[in-house]
Design a protein around this nucleic acid. Structure first.
Lengths: 182, 182
DNA sequence: TGTAGCATGTAAGCCGTTACATGATTGA
DNA sequence: TCAATCATGTAACGGCTTACATGCTACA
């Protein structure tokens, strides 16, 4: 690991590479808008403690004191981020999927309970997908090759495809469960 | 939360509903074989401490002392699990996807680095998929409607579909990146 | 004037991992 | 007999969340 920092630190640091200075509050909003789909939504308190740590390491530069302090990535920060991206392996995704977990244990409840859960999941997927569509739309105009939001837009497309596919699979699973005898 | 226990406790408890008595060691293996695809692979040490906690709550029944102790789910355990499944909401999946995260930040490294990472991810997906295929094959013969491995097989199919789809998407992303000018 | 959003933290605590420690059993 | 696997834990620690605490600013 580049510096022994947790991945979330680099993730937050990375959100500062899009050209602007952010307060902790704004950084949290950006994380909620984008990062939460592929990583996590860190708690407010964690955003502040991470920013403090990044500043200690000289990877971000605070501007102003007390209320309204904004942070920009420093040259050292940019270098640390690049090194981390190049020299360390990403590792395989970890999925914490409570719906799949409960489906796995479907034999301990009745079928209706399982089917209802899957239906709810489809609704939740549709909501999340709508939120991601909005994010993706917000990138339009700066998402061409070489433009600043190129990669975020690729990831958004990836996420949308994932949601779409999951909706389809879960729909199939519901049908398979319902086609079984009583 | 049914009892205030973490989800992983219920997950491990759930792995004991398939009709057999397991040692901590065997439970860990079962978790590695199935749970790790949709939830987590708890560390050995955690398996033992979770089993101790479940036993304290009377949700599992240990048989034998010291080395070779096996655990079975108790009636109370079965009831706690069912209640948890019925009364609590699953919540939305959380994905920790380091590859997507790094793709999001693709503008801080050169394209070759990103493409190489995506190619490696495809290879990793193929390996994981192969492992899941073996798991799924092991369920054959007991995976019909009403049979004990019915739900595990549904989840395995879900996982296989997910892997297949992700391979396809990532392949598309690689092509999109390569089609861009230098 | 009061409430929603902006803004920033501290403290406690749980979940889970890594590192460490120990010993029995099985098979090459 | 030596290594791999089976088997079971303890201790330390890090990451992250929840709960709590504080106060400003904009606007209805």
């Amino acid at each position: 690991m580049g510096q022994g920092l947790p991945v979330t630190s680099y993730a937050l640091l990375g959100l500062l590479t899009f050209g602007d200075a952010l307060t902790g509050y704004e950084l949290k909003q950006r994380a909620d808008a984008t990062l939460r789909f592929y990583w996590v939504s860190p708690a407010m308190s964690q955003v502040y403690s991470e920013l403090a740590r990044l500043a200690e390491h000289g990877l971000v530069t605070p501007s102003g004191e007390g209320r309204g302090t904004t942070y920009t990535i420093s040259d050292a920060g940019r270098e640390a981020l690049t090194t981390w991206m190049r020299e360390s392996a990403p590792g395989f995704p970890v999925l914490k999927h409570p719906v799949a977990l409960r489906l796995l244990l479907g034999h301990v409840v009745d079928r209706e309970t399982t089917v209802a859960m899957l239906r709810d999941h489809v609704l939740a997927l549709e909501k999340e997908e709508a939120a991601l569509v909005e994010v993706r739309d917000g990138l339009r105009g700066h998402d061409g090759p070489g433009e600043i939001f190129r990669h975020p837009s690729l990831v958004a497309d990836w996420g949308l495809d994932y949601f779409e596919n999951e909706r389809r699979i879960v729909g199939d699973l519901i049908r398979r469960l319902e086609d079984e005898g009583p």
